[in-house]
Design a protein around this nucleic acid. Sequence first.
RNA 1: GGCUCUUUGGCCGAGUGGUUAGGCGUCGGUCUGCAAAACCGAGCACGGCGGUUCAAAUCCGCCAAGAGCCUCCA
Length: 488
Amino acid sequence: MSLFIYNTLTKKKELFIPLLLKRVGIYVCGPTVYGDSHLGHARSAIAFDTLFRYLMYLGYKVRYVRNVTDVGHLMNDSDLEKDKIVEKARLESIEPMEVVQYYLNRYHEIMNELNVLPPSIEPHASGHIIEQILLSKEILDKGYAYESNGSIYFDVEKYNKKYSYGKLSGQNISDLLKSIQKSNVQKEKRNIIDFALWKKASQNHIMRWKSPWGEGFPGWHLECTTMSKKYLGDIFDIHGGGMDLIFPHHECEIAQNLVLTGHEGAKYWMHNNMITINGKKMGKSFGNFISLEHLFNGSHPLLTKSYTPMTIRFFIVRSHYRSVIDFSNRDLESSEKELSRLLEASNNIKKLKVKTENSKMNIENLRNKAIEAMDDDLNTPVVISCLFDAAKLINLALIEQIKLTSENIQQLNDLFQLFLFNLLGIKDDFYKKNFLSPFGGAIDLLLQIRMQAKQRKDWITSDFIRYKLIELGFEIRDTKNGVEWELK
RNA sequence: GGCUCUUUGGCCGAGUGGUUAGGCGUCGGUCUGCAAAACCGAGCACGGCGGUUCAAAUCCGCCAAGAGCCUCCA
């Protein structure tokens, strides 16, 4: 048991050693719920779901906190503070919390379809206003923040003198100052790189809470610090999120944590890479995103067809979580075929018969290789290659090119159960749903009639049934062990 | 401009200083009444230029192309 994970803070793969013997605390930045979730959201959720699943497999009791940002996510950092959710609510003439609930429900539905396990705790930023005010005060008392016109700002320059701002992202304060100065003007702040812990609400701002500094709302970076501290403590094991959050979000969290407790907060900082489309990052604000619903029903001009949630999940785990995935129909179709090959092989395991008492097949090796891959910073593509190796063995055994022992068959079954279904989170309800239903029975019946026709060499009838079924989207295969069908 | 990173065969995608990744696609074959699937086989690589080394796709340098961040972002 030696899991190595890449730590953005040290830029190295490090041996994972939990703070407590058998427990792991993870905090992951979840979505800002003001729009439909897209492939990028799925990637982050699936990456950390894989981590969650693997840690549990390793025997840890995992507390996985994934927050919901439902307030304070500003559209920009200028004086015209516009909250994303407030803006959406204004546009649709509804309560901000209706916006939040609507998109959160949809997010949950989609996560469920993608077989993403629910986190242990899903805290909302809006439910932690009091704690955020307290932490703002504390930072203020420690002298690392200042009040300005009803808002509280973190004093980055002062902080930088004692600690080092930019540790996570590799930025340094003077370069930052140079690059920001051109684009942004902010009167209230002492320094352009200071960030808000608490923002004064302008007169028409809907989401507002009372604070010692007047009515306002919390700053984005402080939300995550507050909730991670509350549920995981001052120091916890893993903090995750998309790479686009490294700066400024996680950098600012680290700054807040260091001021409050003298520790960065998390020991390991993990970041999943982006999904691009035509080589550019997929993002809501770029308008180039394909929502997961679009992918599931195929209703987007860039999609040549629809893809099942499991195809999407497989598409994501077949690349390493730290590499960029460029969206393409071609690769999605390829993923679909790859997954169906694995699922078919997995279903073929139950058809295997014990043909020998002792075989040289070493399936334990495949298992070990796959575990090693998971240990190596969750190398899921290599895990999948092991499954393909296993699939080949199953197919060879099925046509009796190789002989397997009952132990071999059990090991193959365990391999698929553990890696494909349990760790990679693929569900195979398709087979159960189709093969065990009256619908499946009807197909079997048609194929029985076809078989009778074949026996009388009535090729016209038998081919008619086959072609019609193929036309309807089925795949028909005559194998040694009888006819097989599948809905493509 | 600054910071971080990427560049592998038609496509996707792992990887280690010296040994076949894997998959999709393509071509050929076996099986089949014909197909499909499966299986067997084939072909196709490490961005460019230098350096270190007995040996580099793997380490170092330079160059080129691209991405992310420096505004909100998974």
